[in-house]
Each structure stands twice: as structure tokens, then as C-alpha cells.
Computed example of a mutant assay.
Amino acid sequence: MPDLPPHIGIDRPGSFSRSVFHERHPVLIANLLADHPYPPHIAEALEALLAESLAGTVPPRTPGGPEIHTWHLEIAAHAGRPWDSLPFLWAEAYFYRRLLRAVEFHHYESPWCGVDPFAPQKRAQLDGPELRTDLDAYASLEGAAPDDRRRALLLAALWGNQADLGFRTNNPDADTANGDLVADDSDALWALADAPGDAPVIVVADNAGREITADLALVDHLLETGTGPVELHLKPHPYFVSDATGRDVVDTLDALDRDPHQAVRDLAGRLRDAIRLGWLRLRSHGAYVHPTDYRTLPSDLAEEFAAAKLVILKGDLNYRRLVGDRQWDPTTPFAQAAGYFPGPVAALRTAKSDLAVGVDPARLAKLDADAPDWRLTGTRAFIQVKA
């Protein structure tokens, strides 16, 4: 196997990855302190984490909570390193794990145990005008031609990734109204999803709020069209700002139940029935909150992926974990970067980080000339498939 490119780091001044720590995270911490009446010791722990991540080193302590064996090994490999020498993906995952420790999310004797620090932001999106627009659009699909409806639901799930609350932390006014596809392997995606057989289609979710709502509509379509059972894989606990958990799915279904559109309420009813009957299986795994990419998948999850008809990975973080958060030449074929994956895989992702693969060279030249920051704005998207 050829050598992989170097990891994207957070050490280069002016880079996007560095700005996440020096610009996004300070706003994120301020938002948490505004959203919750945290006592002084939790507020101090959050401020200390922020200061450490900007100018400190990784301490030898293993952060508490589940998956402790994995974190013990990861900390042993990185303890003592300055934060700005860490790989971007690892450093981000570690920051959020430490954040959960600071707010005592896994501390069973704390009244803050199990309190999702990002819940107020998630609830605001479920109650917001953008979701209202999304649900109006969903209801308008009644009576649409089957191919048009299918295309609309796939694109809604794709562009729902623009609603990433981490991205919007320091880009609250980002113009995501327009966008275009850099790569579109949707025909290959449907060929795999529609293939005969009882193997499940696995959808690995990314964000709560508007994105998981669109994902659930896509899941409903997969079930309606008889592709077989569907598994929706979720985070076992809060991770990055708006990552979807089982609690978020329940909250979303409750919101759909209250919608004025009968079509939306019917959607919620079908999804609840599918869960009860076992056609829609909600699943989680500790690997989804590991600080590593999918080349190090635990054997049980790798076997599930290998046995699936298709794995659909949603969002920018899953994309980074799939191809590796590395300094790829953007023209590297997607099938090459994701070739190790144990089964057929499709990535649905809006670009909100430096990473890109599978870009046609002529298209890349035009993108770089017309909008040099095209990889960061959330207005370009990818539907890419490795069969």
C-alpha cells in the first residue's frame, strides 16, 4: 500500500485548522457559559481547557467516561506533546472529550451528569425558521414524480449538513443558501441501495437538528422503496457540537409529531412503526467517538460495514474519518482514498474543512481560481461512492 499523505495539523498560522482552535473554540466556550448556569468550578474547568488547548501540552491523565481503554492508549501515545503539534482530527476529538469531562457529563455523582452541553443549541434549531422551511418543502413533495422525490430527498440529506452547529459557531451568518455539487455519484449510490437482498443499508448520522430531520426523511424513503432494513448509526453521547444521539432522534420525532403538515406527522408515525417492527434499527458504537479515522475500525463494526448492502456516511467529520484527515492531492480518486473500507460506501458531505479528494482536475482549477476558500464555506458538496 502506498504511503499516506501527512496529517493535517493545527500548527500553521492562517490555516483553517488553526482557526478552529483560536477562533471557533473561544466562541464555543462562551456560548456554553451563556447557555447554562454552570457553577464556578465547571466554568473554570472550561476556561482552563481553552487556555491549555491554545498554549499548553497534553497531560498524561486519561479523560473519564466510556471507551476508557482506547483513550488510555491514545493519551499514552500523545501525552507531553504541545497541542499545536497534534493532528487536527485527533486534537479536535480530544478537545471535545475533555469538554465533556469539564462539564461532568460522565460524572455519575454530579447533577450535570448526562446534561448535553449542546442541547440548547440543538433545541433552537428544531424550533427555528429554517427547519420550518425544510418541512414545508418536504410536505410539498406529495404527488411529485418518484424520481424527482427521490432526488429531492437525497439532496436534502446532503445539504442538511450545512446546518452543522460547529461550523455555525463562528459563522452564524454564513451564506449557505446556494451551493453546487463538486462530485455526484448518486446513480451509483442508488444502484447499490436498490440491489436485491436482505442486507441492511447503514446510514451513519452526523448532526442533530435540521440534518437528522432530513436524514430521517431519506431513511423513510429507503424503507418505503423496499431496499430492506435500514440501520441509523448515532453517537453514543454528545461529541462535536451538534452530533446526533438517540436523544436527538427522539426529540426530532416529537417535533415532527407536532408539525401542522399531515405529511410530516405521517413521516414521524412511519418511522416510529419501523423502529418498533425492527425495520429501522437505531445503533451506536464507541468507535464513533474515538479520535481516530476509520482505518482503525474495531473488528465488530468493520464486520457490520462489510455485511451491509451500502454504508452512507453523512457529513464532514465522517468524511475526514473515512479518507483520513490528511494533505491529499484533491485529484486523488475517492475510491483510492477510501479503498480500504470493508464494504460499499457512499459519502454525503458539504465541504467545511481543507480536505478534498476525487475532484476533477479541470474543475479543481476553476474552483481554486473562482473561490480559493471553496473548501471551507459549506457551499460545495460531494456525493462520492466506492463500490
Rank of each mutant, 00 (worst) to 15 (best):
L4T: 12
P6D: 08
R12F: 00
P13L: 15
P13N: 15
S17D: 07
R18F: 03
R18C: 08
S19C: 04
V20A: 11
F21Y: 07
H25R: 05
P26V: 09
P26R: 02
P26M: 08
A30T: 12
L33Q: 14
D35S: 13
P40Q: 15
I42T: 02
A43G: 11
L46G: 07
E47N: 10
L49F: 04
L50Q: 14
S53W: 08
G56M: 11
T57K: 10
P59Q: 08
T62R: 10
T62E: 07
P63M: 05
I68M: 11
H72N: 13
L73E: 14
E74T: 03
A77Y: 05
A77T: 05
W83I: 14
L86E: 08
P87F: 01
F88H: 09
W90E: 06
Y94D: 08
L99N: 03
L99D: 06
F105Y: 15
Y108W: 09
P111Y: 05
D116Q: 05
D116L: 04
D116A: 09
P117V: 11
F118L: 05
P120F: 15
R123F: 07
A124T: 07
L126K: 03
G128F: 02
L131N: 07
D134E: 14
Y138S: 10
G143C: 11
D147R: 15
L153H: 05
L155T: 00
L155N: 05
G160M: 09
Q162F: 00
R168S: 10
T169D: 11
N170I: 03
N170S: 12
P172V: 11
A177H: 09
N178C: 14
G179E: 05
V182K: 01
A188P: 00
A191M: 06
A191E: 10
P196A: 15
P196R: 14
G197F: 13
V203Y: 04
N207A: 08
R210D: 03
A214S: 14
L222I: 12
K235C: 11
K235I: 07
P236A: 08
F240Y: 09
V241F: 04
A244Y: 02
T245A: 04
D251T: 04
L253I: 07
D257I: 06
A263R: 10
A263G: 05
V264A: 09
A274L: 03
A274K: 01
I275M: 14
R276E: 15
L282H: 01
P291T: 13
T292V: 15
E303Q: 13
A306L: 04
A308F: 02
L313S: 13
R320C: 03
D325P: 06
D325H: 12
Q327K: 15
T331G: 08
T331H: 04
F334V: 04
G343D: 01
A346R: 03
T350L: 05
A351E: 03
V357R: 07
G358W: 00
V359G: 12
L364P: 11
K366M: 06
K366N: 01
P372H: 06
Q384G: 10
